[in-house]
Design a protein around this nucleic acid. Structure first.
Lengths: 197, 197
DNA sequence: GCCTTCATGTGAGCAGCGTAAAGTTTCCCC
DNA sequence: GGGGAAACTTTACGCTGCTCACATGAAGGC
């Protein structure tokens, strides 16, 4: 019966919601998505099998919250290298390197973040974080590359180009689809084509 | 008891393996991955729940075979536009358009093809088809873009660049991650930067 | 023609899963 | 200190992948 004076709002067992998310993330990154179950999360936290339902209406809701957490962390990965950098090209490169680093550090979470049938992609909280990430890429894709169209069209194409490239690279890299001998000391900057006219 | 003289090897019910794959694919594209089960496939074909085990040692094995089928079809999508085209740039563009078309026509299957924890990515049959697809992209990425390094390095970077771009574009497109207003009449060729020096 | 063999398919059954419903504990507010 | 809501437990249901014991039927040797 030792008094634990840590969390402000303790009802019965603590703030279960965050504990479940943490356990889910641990299980996801340790044993992969197919070995993740609500019951295991509940076990890991020490509550009954149905306790999670008080905080997540479904398993998909928990995975969606996990994915949202992932996007938030992806944002900090990108910001880390950007903050304190003034040069425009250096900022763009830092964002790209941060993006790839996140995917490599958390491959299972990254895969979840793009799995349409496990995550409800219309969740507003999720969309908020997705848009925040995209905004960083969008900011740093200006004046990059030569594309046709009016200013608006060009900006959209620059953004789609950079996001496609960095996302495809990250996923193919974590899925081991690139030949090993091509990857020695390689980074995404090496496949960023020289676009200066 | 009509005599069906079609398949060479008929034992009890027909060639169940292919029938199961067809049913699995139908279920996958109709109801999504999370609603696909071996039992439903078996039901759809009209056999008992454990019959699939004679042809696939596990569910992952069936999904892997399905993914391999997907890569084979991706290859034909890419080849369709290439065959009969002589110009080098036109061939490359046709391969890219075919790639994206496949992902749009079969989004659930395309997602499965890159889902590391549902498919055993070391399966030799799967790898054969993956490599066949990559080979087409590799052939058509020559003399594209300006990259640093010796000839071998440049070739590897051209290939990684094109594959990253087309895969990222396909997945972000099917995941609806691009802004709708940017996508009106857009194609992947519009975000292929002008790389001529 | 019979009999063995073995691939193929069936049926019963198990542990684990997500989730629903009802009951129980704890806390807070009045 | 009593009422009520929030947090959690218990029980239960249908579905899942998978194992095991057994039935079936085609193939091939004698």
């Amino acid at each position: 019966m030792k008094a634990e004076s840590k969390e402000p709002t303790r009802y019965h067992h603590g703030n279960l919601r965050q504990a479940l998310l943490a356990a889910a993330r641990r299980l996801l990154e340790a044993e992969g998505h197919s070995n993740l179950s609500l019951r295991k999360c509940a076990d890991a936290v020490g509550v009954s099998a149905t306790a999670p339902q008080n905080h997540f209406p479904s398993k998909a809701a928990l995975l969606t919250a996990l994915a949202a957490e992932g996007y938030a962390e992806l944002e900090t990965y990108m910001r880390k290298g950007i903050d304190g950098t003034a040069d425009r090209n250096a900022r763009r490169n830092a964002a790209l390197l941060g993006y790839v680093a996140f995917a490599q550090d958390h491959p299972a979470l990254y895969e979840l973040m793009f799995a349409r049938d496990r995550v409800s992609s219309s969740d507003p909280e999720l969309l908020r974080h997705v848009r925040a990430c995209f905004a960083i890429l969008a900011e740093n894709s200006k004046d990059f590359g030569r594309f046709d169209g009016d200013a608006e069209k060009v900006a959209a194409r620059q953004q789609m180009f950079l996001w496609s490239l960095v996302h495809g690279y990250s996923q193919l890299l974590t899925a081991n689809r690139f030949k090993k001998e091509s990857m020695l000391g390689e980074s995404i900057l090496d496949i960023l084509p020289d676009l200066r006219s």
